[in-house]
Design a binder for these strands. Structure first.
Lengths: 204, 204
DNA sequence: GTCTATACCCAGATAGAC
DNA sequence: GTCTATCTGGGTATAGAC
């Protein structure tokens, strides 16, 4: 691992622990084992280190989406199968150590960094919500859920629960075991999804 | 308004906008219209200003709970009435400008201030969740919901949705109109509550 | 209770030798 | 690419005059 990578990894580690403002260039330099001034050969500023971290997250997240036709086929195999497949795809991204650290960083920095805030808003909230709206509409057309139910509210009701579990883990319960959380996350959101699904499913 | 109150209010205003670390004693002094050193006649440190803000929040929040017998009577008048009464009690506390500002501050500071974190965990999450568990059990004994449903999961499924709405408003969508949000909050959580309720209610 | 003055520390960043 | 040395500016807090 060269020094640029070291700076990246150590910065990420410290930022995710203490927040961006809570970490100094001196601290980063000390842990990397070089002088502060040497950092500036690799990154032009502290902000640029953060930017490169966010870019990394975006790059990793765009991959691995489940395509819609696949989702449709999964749905035909039953709700349980469908849900687990979707959840697995999501968790496989999140499960990587760097991604967990960056996710915490997103929650920490979103209140005063507009780039982070907008990223969280669009890519972590709005886009998935829209994805779920599509999926609930699909369930409607397959006659799995009632025609009169509100898919937008349903998507939010489902999705926001999971979002707060993430916030709770990454902020309120930090630092607790990540792996254990991910197990629990899967179980809890599945139960929650069933609760939501039960309230609108058609009689069979 | 004396200078001590001015320091309190201006600190709260700035902290809730920029976070604790994002505000300096110089800034506070400037806005109050005195010198930094004069602040120390009223508060022994910056941290003590924050503490006094948190104490204020706790003092305001302990009042105004709906007592259990009242909740039980409300429930007999139908789910809608019951839910609105509870929601009104909660929103009447939150509606005050200072309380809104402190709520944002709680979300901002919880990641690196253990006092804030523990307060959020116990008083804002655990205690309300336990309250809802009691209420769902009450619904069970009144035969409004099925005997076999999981009241703990139900309470979480209901409550965490609202919590994320708060996070979304105070952090992600900040600064947007508070009054408008509170209206929307009431409508959305009511719809959500009905979704949850519908999935477990007894046939009538 | 407020002021001026200042102590002291730590931040991000740059210049220039090697 | 890394170093030493340094600049500049900001932070919290205190001493002592009025």
């Amino acid at each position: 691992m060269n020094n640029k990578e070291k700076i990246f990894n150590i910065s990420l580690d410290l930022f995710s622990k203490h927040g961006y403002d809570g970490v100094s260039m001196r601290q980063i330099a000390r842990e990397v084992g070089i002088k502060e001034s040497s950092i500036y050969n690799h990154y032009s500023s502290k902000q640029e280190i953060l930017n490169s971290i966010l870019e990394y997250y975006v790059r990793e997240m765009v991959s691995d989406e489940i395509p819609l036709p696949q989702a449709s086929r999964n749905l035909d195999k039953g709700f349980d199968f469908f849900y687990r497949a979707g959840c697995d795809a999501f968790l496989s991204k999140l499960r990587q150590e760097k991604m967990m650290k960056i996710t915490r960083l997103l929650f920490i920095e979103s209140y005063h960094n507009d780039d982070v805030k907008n990223f969280l808003k669009k890519s972590i909230i709005e886009e998935p919500i829209n994805g779920w709206i599509v999926l609930f509409n699909m369930m409607k057309s397959k006659n799995l859920i009632r025609k009169d139910c509100d898919v937008v509210q349903l998507s939010q009701s489902f999705f926001y629960y999971g979002m707060f579990l993430l916030y709770e883990h990454f902020i309120i319960n930090y630092p607790e075991d990540d792996e254990e959380f991910l197990e629990e996350f899967m179980l809890k959101t599945e139960k929650h999804a069933k609760t939501i699904f039960d309230s609108v499913k058609t009689e069979d």
